[in-house]
Amino acid sequence: MTVIGYLANGLVFSSIIVLGSIGLSLVYSIADFANFAHGDTMTIGAYASLVTFGAVGGLGGAVLGLPYGFFVALVVGIAAAAAVAVITERVIYEPLDVDSIGLLITSIGIAFVYRALIQIRFGSDFTRFDIQPLRPIEALVPYGVRVTLHDVAIVVSAAVLVVGLHVLLQYTDLGRKMRAMADNPDLARVSGIRTRRVKLWTWVIGAGLAGAGGVFLGLFNQLSPRMGFNLLLVIFAAVILGGIGSVYGAMAGGFLIGMINQLTPFFSDVVEALPIWPGWLARLLESLISIEYANAIAFVIMVAVLLVRPNGIAGEGAT
């Protein structure tokens, strides 16, 4: 594959990571804790849409190689993830009398409950959407780019959602209130913002985007009860890279981490081609920069960021 080919793949995967990291970052800044159940919220979205798609099936025509029914399933997936998150907030998080660290630990419990329920219902095996896999778009193949119309659909849908969020944050009343709350929750409360409602909307948006990310991840790869939890590390790396609590930082971080993740095979080609000396170093790098370690590379980046710029690449110096 060519560089452009890897970049194209990176763009598709980045779209998914961006959807996940935005939600995590939103909840981080407004509900004020690191939500370890975020990955499993993505899984919920994916499985909800799997079930829906199974029920509505083809449903009329198709766009970008995807039957209309898939888009219905996508909406249901988003709605299900949002609904589960809101219920969790109301039933579990809200009545808790613990600090943000306590919430963090609780969210691990929530993550396990989500995943366990999905695993009990659907088993632990991999599944797929019942959609015919497509061949890569012919016109792009000569450039070494092997993306399908489905991939294009993922990128376009993600772009629509991200732009929608941007409009919401910048130009609506709710968006202004959310930004105010992220900045200074106490000030927001005394200035008359109904923080509880804003928080609920944050969950709706954050979990909804995560649900969409989960659906696309299921379309891009496949579905399994661990799919979200396995992605959690990568999403956290993206959020830390962008600076915790910054939505636009999370977009940038998600984009970068997604790209790097998919470019790993390219990097390993580069390392192989370079005359690295001494030989053991070359061998070490070759064995470490490989697709098996794509997640580990995200981790190394995260640790490096924590060491040098704990507030993210765009943030201000040290805490």
Partner: peptide, 24 residues
């Protein structure tokens, strides 16, 4: 005949949530 793996996961999750809720 329930697969013990998700059941353990569920139990762990429920215990974590219950402790944080009722006896932090």
């Amino acid at each position: 005949p329930i697969d013990p793996a998700p059941l353990r996961l569920l139990l762990i999750g429920v215990v974590i949530i219950a402790v944080m809720r009722y006896r932090p």
